[in-house]
């Protein structure tokens, strides 16, 4: 089953978008997860709900919200483009943003749980040994939470890879720019005789997802073994 150029393009684009989306949102996900796990502040419940919103909203609504905010005339998108020349509208960067937003709650949840499982007294012990807060986080909290972070990354990546609704609403379906595997499958299904291509791409998408899950399982096991030694 040979893949056409368009199909290859969609796969490469999907991987690029998912990698960029995951890599860029990871620091934010870690920060948000830490805040939710370790800090109490006014409005925490609302903050938590907003983080989880993309999980429960129809993806089309999230895409529409992104369009309003980050579109060419959006209240964030317009100044971003004017000041920094960064544009999201109808570009692959926009697809990455949509994927990142949709995958964010899936990343935050396991990382947060991993932070909650780290004994805060270990952080205090590190402090009493002279470690400043950021160091404590870097050498105690984060390594101990590493398996959860790995799980979050894999889940976020898998979600980013398969994102469709928000992406197509926000940045449309432009071949080579925003047409990911999911968009390509949808496009194929829209055209007569495209079922075979759709099936091929579906199998590839499933394969990538299974590999990602296996990788996350392996990472989690290795981390568990390391801390038990």
């Amino acid at each position: 089953m040979a893949l056409s150029g368009e199909e290859w393009m969609a796969i490469a684009l999907s991987l690029k978008i998912a990698l960029v989306a995951t890599a860029c949102s990871l620091p934010f996900a870690v920060a948000v997860a830490w805040l939710l796990a370790r800090r109490d502040f006014p409005g925490k419940t609302i903050f938590d709900a907003i983080i989880h919103l993309p999980l429960v909203l129809p993806p089309v609504v999230t895409g529409f919200a992104l369009l309003v905010a980050f579109g060419r005339h959006g209240f964030i998108g317009a100044p971003l483009e004017r000041l920094f020349g960064i544009s999201f509208a109808f570009r692959w960067t926009g697809a990455a943003l949509a994927a990142a937003v949709m995958g964010f709650p899936l990343m935050v949840r396991p990382i947060r749980q991993a932070f909650e499982a780290v004994d805060p007294r270990l952080e205090r012990a590190a402090g009493s040994l002279g470690a400043p807060p950021l160091w404590r986080f870097a050498v105690v909290t984060l390594p101990l939470a590493a398996p959860g972070v790995a799980v979050g990354v894999i889940l976020g990546f898998a979600k980013a890879l398969g994102e469709f609704g928000a992406t197509i609403t926000f940045v449309s379906n432009i071949p080579g720019e925003t047409r990911t595997i999911a968009s390509e499958i949808w496009t194929q299904l829209q055209s007569p005789g495209g079922e075979a291509a759709a099936l091929r791409l579906s199998l590839i998408a499933a394969g990538i997802a299974v590999c990602a899950l296996a990788a996350s399982e392996m990472l989690a096991r290795r981390a568990a073994r390391r801390s038990a030694q």
Partner: peptide
């Protein structure tokens, strides 16, 4: 703060 006190527990 604790990490600047040089008091180990």
């Amino acid at each position: 703060p604790a990490h600047k006190r040089r008091i180990a527990v």
